[in-house]
Design a protein around this nucleic acid. Structure first.
Lengths: 123, 123
DNA sequence: TAGAAAGCTCACGTTGACGTCAGAGGTAGC
DNA sequence: GCTACCTCTGACGTCAACGTGAGCTTTCTA
């Protein structure tokens, strides 16, 4: 498929797909005229990349990990990196749980205030 | 306390504290000479701000929510925003759980490959 | 009372993941 | 073969949360 279709199927912009290629995360075939052509597997790869981005993992780090994501192979160094990222993700989840509690406390307080007729700040 | 002490007690840089003030998130008293003076409560407020930042909530959104965090009051509009952020945080946690599974699968595959003596990509 | 340390206000720099625009060529349906 | 989109390569713009440096004033310490 061409870049527009991949963009549509993944929900990622055309610009982003070209950017992924710049970063070495995606290496499509090229037609005679220079147009990019992607296999179906690219859809999953793009989703994986987005997953990692969402976890705060940088392009460079993703690039480092991608070969072993694809082939199942990893050098000890890459394995160490993988564990580091895992820990980071776990930490993020814990932090977000804390934030959730904060938000819930705020919401509960606000609801109580609303029920007891306390005036509201502008907004 | 002055800005340096607040920075030390919260682990946030002096520059960041001035930035929070620019955004309206922090409004310290000023001495005759113009130096900022913070109360003890500022420590908790800074930590709360950091919590929200970590959850991907922007300065503007935090600013909108802060009054009701402080006073326990909230307009219906702010309450809606709070619920939106809550949903967003929940979604982030779910996404990160997915990422964690991906990482675990990759790590498991890499370990198996390592044990069976498969060659490694450079790195 | 000096001088180091901390604070002040601009104001420009940084980083990452794209957005956007320009100008030119490729492709598909009729 | 025409037309309407699609794609290409630069290359500059954006946005948020600060970093950094300059040049100056205030406060603490010996």
């Amino acid at each position: 498929m061409r870049i527009g279709e991949l963009a549509e199927r993944t929900g990622v912009s055309v610009r982003a797909l070209r950017y992924y290629e710049e970063q070495g995360l995606l290496t499509p075939e090229r037609s005679e005229s220079g147009q990019r052509h992607y296999s179906d597997k690219a859809v999953d790869r793009v989703r994986l990349i987005q997953h990692f981005y969402a976890a705060g993992i940088s392009s460079a780090a993703i690039l480092e990990m991608l070969p072993c994501v694809v082939t199942g192979e990893a050098s000890p160094h890459v394995l160490t990196k993988l564990h580091e990222h895992r820990s980071s993700v776990v930490r993020q989840i814990e932090d977000l749980r804390g934030t959730l509690q904060q938000l819930d406390a705020v919401i509960a307080g606000a609801v109580r205030a609303h029920e007891s007729g306390v005036p509201c700040p502008p907004g």
